[in-house]
Design a protein around this nucleic acid. Sequence first.
DNA 1: AAAACGGGGAT
DNA 2: ATCCCAGTTTT
Length: 337
Amino acid sequence: MADDAFARTLLAWHARHGRHDLPWQTPDPYKRWLAEVMLQQTTVAAAIPYFTRFTERFPDVATLAAASLDDVLALWAGLGYYARARNLHASARLIMTRHGGAFPRTLAAWTALPGIGPSTAGAIVAFAFGVRAPILDANARRVLRRFHGIEGQGTLVTQRLWEHARAHLPRTRIAAYTQAIMDLGALVCRARPNCPVCPLAATCAFEGEAPAVSARTRPERQAVMMLVHRRRGREVLLLRRPPKGIWGGLWSLPECAVLSDVPTRLTELGIDGLVGAPGTPLRHVFTHFALTITPVPVALRPRSCRARANGDIMWHPGGAPAPGVPAPVKRLLNQFW
DNA sequence: AAAACGGGGAT
DNA sequence: ATCCCAGTTTT
């Protein structure tokens, strides 16, 4: 059966108007894997500098597998969704042990790795090996939804979209086609679409946006972060966060819910310090809640701290290479020094 | 089936 | 301020 008009039209459009100069546009499976993981819920522009640093520091899967999780998280810090970095590191080790350092070529083998779902696996095998696999990222989802006039959400709608994604796949030129549907979504069929320049406009079912759903309010949360410093502010105490949950495995500041809890929290940590005046609160907005962080300086009394540096506690000197800290903590530290 | 997960960029 | 993004995992 011949490729359908959808695929032929997209491929023709992509040759002239698609992206051809992204740093990960090579058949190298390592680069494709790294890029696809970085691009989960992340824009191309945000990912590029991280991709460049990563491939310089960890040029291949063996190097990545041999690195410490701390080094990987430090390079990932600021990109968000830190579970991706933990999964990437775990996957690198699995590729070394389970696959002898050779990248698998099947969808099933890729989805068996942590952090790799059906869409990411499809993109990797399509780009790296030309395997005829569909993707359903945000771009493909939006293009297919509009082209086929599919509204609503839920598992049933997602199933239908996957069926369309599979049905449109051409027999050849899979990598170019996969790039084409992504590019159409990113460059033309955006949230606010540019239908007049769209190659699919003549056969597209899209008629206009559904009425916008009312924005739900984000819960507000509060936290106090302590800047416990010694040596006249030259070093600040960092604690490693638990491996699971928000900012898992990253370094952060000692924390408590409200200002009145500060003395108790310091006692728990074995710290005898002079609590200073709270600084300007910092607001940090997440997907599903907003956090207002009140920074409090704490000057450590000489020879009073039982908090010794170990694998989960660090006295961080201002000038040293940045460890993996979440973005708002980085801002607090920069503001402190 | 729904919730959880982070932060940057566009509008 | 709000929306969106080369989605997957956990509950």
